[in-house]
Write a protein that binds this DNA or RNA. Structure first.
Length: 262
DNA sequence: CGTGTTTGACCGGCGC
DNA sequence: GCGCCGGTCAAACACG
């Protein structure tokens, strides 16, 4: 079975060629046709997290001072994060590979409190996407009680502020293992059996300090071979493999982390 | 002993 | 107001 390919024009003069992996263990290959850079490979989950959530500031800041041509290219690309996101999205949508599908939320804003709690395991891809993209401000979030103490009111305000919605997307893949290696290190903090499903939902948090990214992992009710991974938040750091390389020069580290950015 | 997992309790939002 | 339910906490536990 040959990999499906797609070419997406990220911006004028730069075309990427992608190969979508045929199983959940292989990686997407990026080749920059209009540059002399060698092809890059990375795991789709890593791509999506870094592409979807990468801002031009955090990727670009390191990259601009880096001697790594890949990171400089990444900085260039990250100046058009939406296009890059569209590219990755289009690629994964267009593939006929049955192992991969995803649904995403492209807008950012205050977190809703209703739809986030729906059982996506029993939802279709379409309804998952609709739910994710239909989040709106819940007016109750900003309401503070009239007869609360100042301290309590402050707590309420803190809570309201914390209700800022993190970007999230869910990703469905056919896999025997529940937790796919996406390059980041996770700690499990809960497991719950949700209604009308036989399989429990697991909750994970990124182990990195000051990183509040979470993910949920569950099996699709209708098809237990499918794993639904829902990410919430955006990593403010490189994947955990790189931690061992902190003693190395920046340029070296940049090169090592390149495959996770692009 | 440090780190990660398990699991019952608890909390808060939502619908009725 | 109350009950349901998803999400989180944290103590106990397992393991290297």
């Amino acid at each position: 079975m040959l990999p499906s390919t797609a070419e997406i024009s990220l911006r004028e003069g730069l075309v990427e060629s992608h190969e979508v992996p045929m199983d959940q263990t292989s990686h997407i290959r990026f080749s920059f046709q209009s540059s002399s850079l060698p092809p890059l490979t990375c795991h789709p989950l890593g791509i999506i997290q870094n592409t979807l959530f990468a801002s031009s500031t955090d990727v670009g800041a390191e990259a601009s001072s880096s001697s790594s041509p890949h990171l400089k290219e990444a900085a260039l690309l990250s100046s058009v994060p939406l296009r890059a996101f569209e590219a990755a999205s289009t690629l994964l949508r267009s593939t006929t590979n049955p192992c991969w599908s995803w649904s995403e939320e492209t807008t950012r804003g205050p977190r809703a409190t209703v739809d986030t709690q729906k059982n996506i395991g029993s939802m279709s891809d379409k309804s998952i996407h609709e739910n994710l993209s239909n989040y709106t401000v819940n007016p109750k979030i900003n309401r503070v009680g009239n007869n609360l103490s100042v301290g309590a009111m402050r707590m309420k305000k803190v809570k309201a502020r914390r209700k800022v919605r993190e970007p999230r997307f869910c990703f469905k893949t056919m896999s025997e293992v529940d937790v796919l290696d996406d390059g980041y290190k996770w700690r499990k903090y809960g497991q719950k059996v949700v209604k009308n499903t036989q399989h429990p939902r697991s909750y994970y948090r990124c182990t990195q300090d000051n990183c509040r990214v979470k993910k949920r992992v569950e099996r699709l009710a209708e098809d237990p071979r499918m794993v639904i991974t829902t990410y919430e938040g955006r990593h403010a750091h490189s994947p955990s493999h790189d931690e061992d390389d902190q003693s190395q020069p920046l340029s070296m580290r940049s090169q090592l982390s390149t495959s996770f950015f692009w």
